[in-house]
């Protein structure tokens, strides 16, 4: 069984007529890196909220089906319990930092759990170090760059020791340098610590090289789910308005002219290697 099991989940926010999620099934294995994408308003954020219990505990509405997180049914466990398994990082780093120093913010979650002080200190130190925020721990959030703020937010969530990190468009407020900083951090957490990642993103050119799977949502449903090479070359992905990375479009253009590469490239470096192999063999 996967660490996250979404089983036939439908959800309609109270006061809304249209369901935000419509019979969604999704299974994520431990240590997987999954990208979730799709046009705005397709239900990505609602799905994220289901994973740590914000739906249905914080956002009420009509909830059907079930979500299992590390074996816990989200309907029967509270957000604070679930958030020790699934850490949620939001779009705007500013609204996730409530304290006047990074360190105090990272301590916020474990403090709420009422853990022993020594344990809190250990976790805070660990979370600050794995996110590269140790040196900046005494800084107030407004003195940090956007990338650093988002790193602090990730550290704050990691201090809850979750097995899964769910990030809802964490780079959309950042500049390219900040975005790259966050993406490589997330990739490293996944690779080195085996943390399962579900990353909501529009920018597939920057993110797909890291992904084991790409899931595309549309109108509250899962439309596509598979390895990035497969999903991003499918006709459906284009029709759904997914931004196909330029390297994949170039790959397709070359194929049309008879230059077939042995693999679907996800990054310019990979593509260049593939091309050089092919043209040198000819």
């Amino acid at each position: 069984m996967g660490i996250i099991e979404v089983e036939d989940v439908s959800f309609t926010y109270s006061g809304s007529k249209r369901p935000a999620l419509d019979h969604v099934d999704l299974s994520i294995k431990k240590s997987e890196f999954v990208i979730l994408t799709g046009p705005s308003g397709c239900g990505k954020t609602t799905l994220c909220r289901c994973l740590n219990g914000l739906v249905p505990h914080f956002y009420s509405g009509d909830f059907r089906g079930r979500v299992l997180v590390a074996g816990l049914d989200t309907r029967e466990h509270e957000i604070w319990e679930l958030s020790q398994h699934v850490g949620l990082v939001f779009q705007n780093p500013e609204n996730q930092l409530f304290c006047l120093t990074v360190e105090a913010d990272v301590a916020f979650g474990p403090e709420n759990l009422g853990l022993p002080r020594e344990e809190i200190r250990r976790r805070v130190e660990w979370a600050l170090k794995v996110t590269g925020m140790w040196e900046l721990r005494h800084r107030p959030p407004h003195e940090l760059s956007g990338g650093q703020q988002q790193r602090a937010a990730i550290a704050a969530v990691l201090a809850m020791k979750p097995e899964v990190l769910v990030l809802d468009e964490p780079t959309s407020f950042l500049d390219p340098a900040g975005a790259a900083e966050i993406l490589s951090l997330v990739a490293e957490l996944n690779k080195r610590l085996g943390i399962t990642v579900l990353l909501v993103e529009h920018r597939l050119d920057m993110t797909s090289p890291y992904a084991d799977r790409v899931v595309v949502m549309a109108k509250g449903r899962i439309a596509l789910d598979g390895p990035p090479e497969e999903v991003l070359t499918s006709r459906e992905a284009r029709e759904l308005g997914v931004g196909i990375p330029k390297v994949i479009r170039l790959y397709e253009l070359l194929a049309e002219r008879g230059l077939r590469l042995p693999e679907v490239p996800l990054s310019p470096g990979q593509m260049a290697s593939l091309i050089s192999e092919v043209v040198r063999c000819r």
């Binding site: 957000i79 604070w80 949620l88 409530f98 759990l113 809850m160």
Partner: peptide, 15 residues
């Protein structure tokens, strides 16, 4: 939302 996701109000005895 962010506070809830970081166990706001989880324990009566907050450390």
């Amino acid at each position: 939302e962010a506070m809830e996701s970081r166990a706001w109000g989880a324990s009566r005895k907050r450390t």
